[in-house]
């Protein structure tokens, strides 16, 4: 379908309106039923709490974001490096891929307590976020590296391309789209991993990230602050996903079919 100017505005306006409507409904439910703030705070109160508690919440937001980004960077570097190694040798891939799968299918919340014994709380949280973000990068990059057009591979072979030339000129560019898909998934998972690990660590009285604030506020029945922290986590997740989607669009828009404007 072709989006005209009016339709384009609508495509922005509609979700915004829907969101505003949901907030309004929430507000009405609280107001009409006289629900006390310690059970369900009205959206305005959540916003006010966000402002009044900003010093404490922003510090925690920063802690969680830093963990998430550090984990994402390490997971990306590690996942790509390992994928390149796996793509070079079927035997190495065959031998070590199962480890990555085991790490992936074991719920991180079950590993966290163990990590908290072995590592400092900060390092344990970082490790958890890394572990969950690592696999999607590895598996998607590996899939991209190994599913190159066989005719293009023949062309490289005919021209006596070295393994390195084939990797740099053929496999890596061909893997870029699926790597970026993996990265987008990993961004979301790194945040989830960090939050889960913070909660696990928080219950043993350590940490200062957003999840810890939620647990702490829960003990004190400070429900508005729980909601405010929750809102920050959601916003952080949306921003991470949005920036990675943007990165992907910028890198691929010139040549990849996923970005073709069929209506344009």
């Amino acid at each position: 379908m072709r989006l005209g100017h009016g339709a384009r505005i609508l495509s922005w306006a509609m979700p915004v309106l829907a969101f505003a409507g949901a907030l309004l409904a929430w507000d009405l439910v609280v107001r009409l039923n006289g629900i006390p703030p310690f059970i369900l705070p009205a959206p305005a109160l959540v916003a006010a709490t966000l402002v009044s508690d900003w010093p404490i919440l922003s510090a925690s937001l920063w802690v969680t974001l830093r963990t998430t980004l550090e984990a994402l960077v390490v997971a990306t570097a590690g996942g790509v490096a390992l994928a390149v190694v796996f793509a070079q040798s079927r035997w190495i891939a065959l031998s070590f891929y199962p480890f990555a799968v085991i790490l992936q299918v074991t719920p991180i919340i079950a590993i966290a307590p163990l990590l908290l014994i072995y590592l400092s709380p900060d390092a344990a949280v970082l490790t958890c976020a890394f572990v969950v973000a690592f696999f999607p990068v590895l598996s998607n990059t590996l899939a991209g590296l190994t599913s190159v057009d066989p005719n293009l591979r023949d062309l490289f072979r005919l021209n006596r391309a070295s393994r390195l030339a084939e990797l740099l000129r053929l496999r890596i560019p061909a893997a870029l789209p699926s790597f970026l898909v993996g990265l987008r998934i990993a961004g979301g998972l790194a945040l989830i991993g960090a939050i889960v690990a913070e909660i696990a660590a928080g219950s043993s009285g350590q940490g200062s990230g957003l999840a810890y604030r939620i647990v702490e506020a829960g003990y004190r029945l400070n429900v508005p602050r729980m909601f405010a922290a929750l809102a920050l986590i959601s916003i952080a997740g949306v921003v991470i996903y949005g920036s990675l989607a943007l990165l992907s669009h910028v890198l691929l828009r010139r040549w990849h079919d996923s970005t073709v404007a069929r209506d344009g």
Binding site: N151, L152, D154, L155, A174, W255, H256, D257
Partner: peptide, 9 residues
């Protein structure tokens, strides 16, 4: 080749 087999990037 039968297909152009170009590097799309």
């Amino acid at each position: 080749f039968q297909e152009p087999t170009l590097m799309p990037w």
